[in-house]
Design a protein around this nucleic acid. Structure first.
Lengths: 306, 306
DNA sequence: CTGTTAGCGCGTTCAA
DNA sequence: TTGAACGCGCTAACAG
């Protein structure tokens, strides 16, 4: 840095201020210093910078799975000039160890949590770091369902079945009802969030006397199972049955299922933006995560009877 | 550190040496210092350590996609006490920028590359960092193919078609031939590495007079496409046609395709072990990446004719 | 707006 | 085997 300072005819402190965008430097000086630094291929040494008490230029990213959201977040952080310290906290052991040891002291400017629901203790541990943090929630099932229902209504569907993953125990009847659909108990079914689960549930669903013209699945893998099974049964998708997934797994994309996607990339970017705002001491206002209906080949107009 | 030194009745230099396992400290002193440090929950500050010329306790992980290998590598590195600096270099722009700016100077102890085939220039840029690096190769198609062929032979198949992804231009005839299979030119076909590609190739393949009893696909998505199309054509899998993928994408697992998998986790762990050996100045000996045949529901005994 | 001074917390001499 | 002094590259607080 002193080399750059000498070359630019200023002091090291000025170089520091100029390169970090700190106030207190004339615009002319800043430009000049930046130019010289670039020519000399100089970049601030982060270690020394953080040692001296400045920022650390690093964000810890905690995630329970390596997912597209991670890719989105990484890109946004990198672009903002931050390093990404990755912690994959998939196994309970690793997760417990992390929150026990909290190896983040004085090493990051912020923490980003992806698809992690924290326990109270974990939350408290995180707070004790005294570092800004923010979490990216999972897709909001409720809103996703409304989106899917609207899509199907538009296509003329009135007989819509809802396949929920085991573990989802809220009632969504009111959403179906308020959309003007009949709520038929036998058209709300549960299955495991797997391809197998989806296949099995089809037997139940298409066994009644009245068949739904469309099926919404809360889980992507199950949606795929439904799709495969329905086709194997000799029913055309979407001509006889439309299928919509509320979960934008890669699976749904690859086989061409219509899905409500969590807009993973945007969610990650949004979260990064919020986190950076927090780091700068700003206030953030909660916003709903964007949802995106991606219409592919598994949903179409309802077939007019007769 | 000076606090610990005081508490232990030694100098800071001794604490440093003791905690880093440096020689030149009596075993008694080392034990004592370690004990005191633990009691005081003291850990060496990595920033200061690297500033002063010591280790950086960090590894840069470069990857072209967020994949299970990444998860495996992260775990292994974490366990070895290293931070993971993640760089997702999926987009050409990001990748070019990285190799242009090389933002790694003096910041990591090593570099781990996952599923990245480096160009000569990139290779050179990496070397210029003067930091140990190691790459996890993609699955070796050749060996994977041998594994798949052996599996099918065992099941009695003799009429095996090979679907290669566009871009794969090596000849694998000798592998098929040496396994005692007839090499029929019309049974080696190319398609794009997508579900669509797989679907399309089925038309070509099952249009001849003599049909293969098994299909090997080098790509997982294409394998899925083949699977879907064959079923839709009303042919049973695996009773009429067996399908084996040489690529263990999640896709193949979820829909139950037999696949030769790269044993991602083990590969990642192995690479980390090698990298750490390099960092310590050791020599590594090349080993073949482990391959694993995962038999699922898409491969079965050949149906005895008539 | 800019320069000067004094550390940040450690590793590495060198001497004892 | 240990300790004291020095400097790594930078930023914060002050002075101008």
């Amino acid at each position: 840095m002193s080399d750059v300072a000498k070359a630019a005819g200023v002091s090291a402190a000025t170089v520091s201020r100029a390169l970090r965008g700190e106030p207190g430097v004339s615009e002319a000086t800043r430009q000049h210093v930046s130019e010289v630094a670039r020519r000399m291929k100089y970049a601030i040494a982060r270690d020394a910078s953080s040692l001296a008490g400045g920022r650390r230029y690093a964000i810890a990213v905690l995630t329970s799975e390596v997912s597209p959201v991670l890719a989105g977040a990484e890109g946004a952080l990198r672009q903002a000039g931050y390093d990404v310290l990755l912690y994959v906290l998939a196994e309970p052991g690793a997760r417990a160890k992390f929150f026990d040891e909290l190896p983040l002291g004085r090493r990051v400017d912020g923490v980003l949590l992806l698809s992690m629901s924290l326990s109270g203790a974990e939350q408290a541990a995180l707070e004790s770091l005294e570092v800004p943090h923010i979490a990216v929630d999972d897709t909001d099932l409720r809103r996703a369902l409304r989106t899917a229902v609207a899509h199907l209504l538009e296509l003329g569907h009135r007989d819509v079945a809802l396949v929920l993953s085991d573990g989802v125990d809220e009632s969504y009847d009111e959403i179906l009802a308020s959309a003007g659909l009949d709520v038929r108990p036998e058209w709300t079914v549960w299955c495991s969030p797997t391809v197998d689960g989806g296949e099995q549930v089809v037997d139940v669903l298409l066994d009644g006397e009245r068949l739904p013209t469309a099926v919404i699945s809360s889980n992507g893998a199950a949606a795929l199972g439904i799709y495969l099974r329905v086709q194997r049964d000799g029913r055309a998708v979407p001509d006889e049955v439309s299928i919509v997934s509320l979960d934008g797994q890669e699976l749904t994309r690859v086989v061409g299922l219509t899905a409500v996607e969590g807009a993973a990339k945007e969610q990650g970017e949004r979260a990064v933006a919020d986190l950076l705002t927090l780091i700068r001491g700003g206030q953030i206002e909660p916003v709903e995560h964007p949802l995106r209906l991606v219409v592919r080949n598994s949903s179409g107009p309802v077939r007019t009877a007769g």
